[in-house]
Simulated assay, not measured.
Amino acid sequence: MNDWTTSHQRATAQRHAEGWMFLIEAARDLRTTGAIAPSGKALAHALTEPVRARSPRPLAVLEAGAGTGAVTRHLIPRLPRGSRLDIVEANPRFAERLRVLAATHPSTTSRSAEITVHQRLVEDLDTDRRYDVIVSGLPLTNFTPDTVERIMGRYMKLLHPGGTLTYFAYLGTRRARTLLASPSEARRHAAVDHVMTAYQRRYATARWSVWANLPPAHVWHLQHPPMPSQPSTDGQQHHSDQVSQ
């Protein structure tokens, strides 16, 4: 058995274990686990694009709702040397898994990035730090509109001027809930969609369609308004619908 086969088998076993862990935690609490499976590589690539775009200077990055670390593993190797990564995860079992990942990932020592895991809700993160990039994996469609407004408001306050928030939303969830959910649940979901649409109209710079994910998703990039004398990181604000296979 060669090294590639062994590595492939380990990766497959890890994905299966994470899938079962997601299902178990979702059954326990949809507030902290809203996905049915860890994010795939294509989704992780789209979510971490703002980090690559800002290299090679050191960055302050926040990942919220990191789960089992599917996006975190994609993010750590892309951090420029001297960067800081704060990971916020409310689920205690996921948080412990993330601490192990942060301590053992091969890129952690070679890139000299400072990584800290915070076991708490992102709304309760007590910090004066501002971030260049925020990567959100929180299941916003599971929350009340007021909670979503608090989370989004907190994100925008935590961003540096010109900083980027990136998050995803599964395709087709609104239609599915409209057809299958109770009237009150359908109204809640529509109200959350209204909150998110307002933020998208005000701050969105890009939207990616990620079909190679279970389920497919849109990834949104929202940018905190730059200071008057500071150019946008994209040169100019724009809306796009880029496709990730």
Rank of each mutant, 00 (worst) to 15 (best):
T104E: 15
T141H: 06
F143P: 07
Q119F: 08
T116I: 11
Y131K: 02
I134F: 10
S112L: 12
F143S: 07
S112E: 15
T144H: 06
D128H: 09
D126T: 07
S107G: 09
P139Y: 06
T108D: 02
R130V: 04
Y131R: 02
L98I: 12
H118M: 04
S136Q: 05
D128P: 08
G137E: 01
P106C: 09
A102C: 13
L101R: 01
V135A: 01
T108E: 08
A113Y: 01
P139R: 04
R130F: 07
T116H: 11
V117T: 04
T109L: 14
D126S: 12
D132P: 06
G137F: 06
F143A: 07
H105M: 10
L138P: 00
V133A: 04
A102S: 11
F143M: 13
T104N: 12
L138S: 05
V100N: 12
V133C: 03
D132N: 12
R120S: 14
Y131H: 06
V133T: 06
D124Q: 15
V122H: 01
P145C: 10
A103T: 11
V117H: 01
E123N: 08
D126C: 02
L138V: 11
R111A: 09
R120V: 07
N142C: 03
S112N: 15
P139M: 04
L125A: 11
F143H: 10
L140A: 07
G137H: 07
S136E: 01
L101N: 02
R99A: 08
R120G: 11
R129M: 12
G137A: 09
R129T: 12
S107L: 03
G137W: 04
D126K: 11
